[in-house]
């Protein structure tokens, strides 16, 4: 790896001052699982690395009546094992459980993973379906954005130089909301998804009251299957409706050919896995 200088701020304020001073010449390191591999391949060559591991105040998992707040430095494994998350946002625990291996989940953090903006990761499609918001800080203040506005392109986030993710805010799920995360893995259990589907739905008898579908690994960013959502909302569940909604995702995905499958194959699998998710949540045992 190239030569660089490492800084060890203790507070958020100290971190933001360093980020402001070094701008594009600095990269934050959280768990390091993405940054280290990018640096080993010389894809990123920061002169300064700002280590977040000693920063206080980024490690919380808290809930209020309306939302769950997760500090940017909370590790994947902590989210997966958190009783609070398992009870209040079960799909988030089950999604994080599917990331890579336990060893990587012991290292990678929620903030670091989202800043990495790889659309084939597991959490983004679920957080998109959950309508999560991202809290961002810089030396000049704070802002909160919808997670849809965080992802710009493959490995590109919308953070400005000097900004960092401090917290992920997730609206609480209603107790009658059902959800599932499906990950298509034709290769190995620790792989990135070939296609992933995050589905959150609320039913009123046989009518789909609300439904949100996040798709991963099928476009430059995680996407919402909005046509499918509109197809389903307010309608009575039937095999035909589910098939029609599933078919519509083919219009919205834009996958890449790679060693996990051709673009055509992934488009087909997006339909298949959306259908399976819908069958499981809408037609499965309540």
């Amino acid at each position: 790896m190239h030569d660089f200088t490492v800084h060890h701020p203790q507070s958020l304020q100290e971190t933001l001052i360093l980020l402001d001073r070094f701008g594009d010449a600095a990269q934050l390191i959280a768990g390091g699982t993405a940054l280290m591999n990018f640096m080993k391949q010389s894809l990123l060559l920061p002169e300064h690395i700002i280590n977040l591991q000693r920063v206080q105040g980024l490690q919380h998992i808290q809930s209020t009546k309306d939302e769950v707040r997760i500090g940017a430095m909370v590790k994947h494994r902590e989210i997966e094992k958190s009783n609070l998350i398992q009870n209040e946002v079960p799909i988030l625990a089950s999604t994080y459980r599917r990331v890579a291996t336990i060893r990587i989940r012991n290292m990678a953090t929620i903030g670091g993973g989202l800043a990495h903006a790889d659309p084939a990761q597991d959490p983004p499609s679920t957080l998109v379906a959950l309508n999560a918001r991202i809290r961002i800080a810089s030396i000049s203040g704070e802002r909160t954005i919808s997670i849809m506005d965080l992802f710009q392109n493959y490995y590109e986030n919308s953070l400005m130089p000097g900004e960092m993710i401090t917290e992920v805010i997730i609206p609480s799920m209603h107790s009658d909301t059902k959800s599932t995360y499906l990950k298509f893995l034709p290769r190995t259990a620790d792989d990135y998804a070939t296609v992933s589907v995050s589905l959150i739905a609320t039913l009123n008898e046989n009518i789909v009251r609300d439904v949100r579908i996040g798709l991963g690994a099928v476009a430059p960013t995680p996407i919402r299957a909005t046509i499918a959502e509109e197809t389903l909302k307010g309608h009575a569940i039937s095999d035909e409706l589910i098939q029609q909604a599933s078919n519509s995702v083919a219009q919205q995905v834009d996958p890449l050919d790679d060693f996990r499958g051709s673009a055509d194959y992934k488009r087909d699998m997006a339909i298949v896995f959306t259908k399976r998710a819908l069958q499981q949540v809408l037609q499965g045992p309540s």
Binding site: V6, I29, G32, T33, M36, N37, K40, I49, N51, Q53, R77, T101, I102, R103, I104, N106, M107, D190
Partner: peptide, 24 residues
């Protein structure tokens, strides 16, 4: 960080030492 050969335990938890900066 994929294969697990470099696994060491940090406070009892597995990590991949090949993608860990020692100074962190």
């Amino acid at each position: 960080g994929v294969c697990g050969a470099c696994t060491v335990l940090v406070d009892g938890e597995m990590i991949a030492s090949c993608i860990t900066l020692a100074v962190t």
